[in-house]
Design a protein around this nucleic acid. Structure first.
Length: 285
DNA sequence: CCGGACTCCTGTGCGC
DNA sequence: TGCGCACAGGAGTCCG
């Protein structure tokens, strides 16, 4: 499932095709994937909200959110949820995926024309339109914590200090920290040597420092590897990532710990499967 | 206000 | 080999 590294890699893989491209045509196949800011239902205006007639000037990411910013002002915020994909395909080349395509953009640029699709079989994702990047930041991204790649240990410590929930649940909470999901929460906690059941507020400053470092390292390595291809994640050109090969704990419940050889534990925290090593990860209550 | 539980949805993979 | 069911989970919402 796409988390911060997958979105960052997607952003980088789409930028060469999208930046400077003009949106010639928009085809919204499923209306309910689009949420229009400040409107209940104005389907006549949806093509403008989907950037029709504008030129894409930049791509912007915060946590797992990706924004397409147009030169005319309007922005479109994409969230992939569990199974979402954004895929660009140059003109003449057929798109391999045709099912569950909810929105299709026809793009034109000096480099050549092409089509961009948003597909999302499970439909946990969606598209959010805003009149400007400022409005997106004020009305949607304001409820998110700092981006996980940029957060400082002192800031994370202050935020974790306020909750009595297990650290695993706190890391999944986007209002505390934006971008970490189930895979990288487990991987970061393993690398930091912290039991996921530990109470967030009980972690010392030094432990949070180690955790912050682990988060930055894990996310950075995953970005460089092109993300983790779990189930359906593919980048903007349809390529998978290789970081799944380097998962130490995620998806390895019952198998041996790669560090100590003990059997990895699997529990459920905040309704999410959680894998950890009882021997390598210390519990703080 | 906080934390826990439920809900949405469909492809995948396992057991019989 | 094929069928059917449990499971996967991001995040909004609701409830105690």
């Amino acid at each position: 499932m796409p988390e911060l590294p997958e979105i960052e890699h997607l952003k980088r893989s789409l930028e060469p095709f999208l930046i400077g491209s003009t949106v010639v045509k928009v085809d919204l196949q499923r209306r309910d994937v689009l949420r229009q800011y400040g409107r209940q239902t104005n389907w006549r205006a949806y093509s403008k909200d989907l950037l029709a007639g504008t030129t894409i000037s930049s791509l912007c990411r915060h946590g797992k959110n990706l924004a397409l910013v147009s030169d005319a002002g309007p922005v479109l915020c994409v969230h992939l949820g569990m199974s979402g994909q954004m895929r660009f395909s140059p003109a003449g080349k057929r798109l391999s995926e045709t099912t569950h395509v909810h929105c299709l953009w026809t793009l034109a640029s000096k480099q050549g024309n092409g089509k961009l699709i948003f597909r999302d079989p499970r439909r946990f994702g969606g598209l959010w339109s805003f009149p400007s990047i400022q409005m997106l930041r004020e009305h949607r991204w304001s409820s998110l914590g700092p981006d996980a790649l940029a957060i400082r240990a002192s800031d994370l410590a202050a935020r974790l200090h306020k909750t009595q929930r297990p650290i695993k649940a706190a890391l999944l909470e986007q209002s505390i920290l934006a971008g970490v999901g189930n895979i990288y929460a487990d991987e970061s906690l393993f690398r930091a040597g912290i039991d996921p059941r530990s109470i967030a507020a009980r972690l010392s400053k030094d432990r949070v420092k180690a955790l912050t470092r682990a988060i930055h390292q894990v996310l950075g390595a995953a970005i460089n590897a092109g993300g983790s291809t779990i189930r359906s994640y593919l980048d903007g050109s349809g390529n998978g990532g290789s970081f799944a090969n380097r998962h130490q704990v995620y998806g390895r419940g019952g198998q041996v710990c790669l560090a100590c050889g003990h059997s990895l534990e699997q529990v459920v925290i905040a309704q999410r499967t959680t894998v950890f090593c009882n021997h390598c990860q210390q519990l703080f209550l």
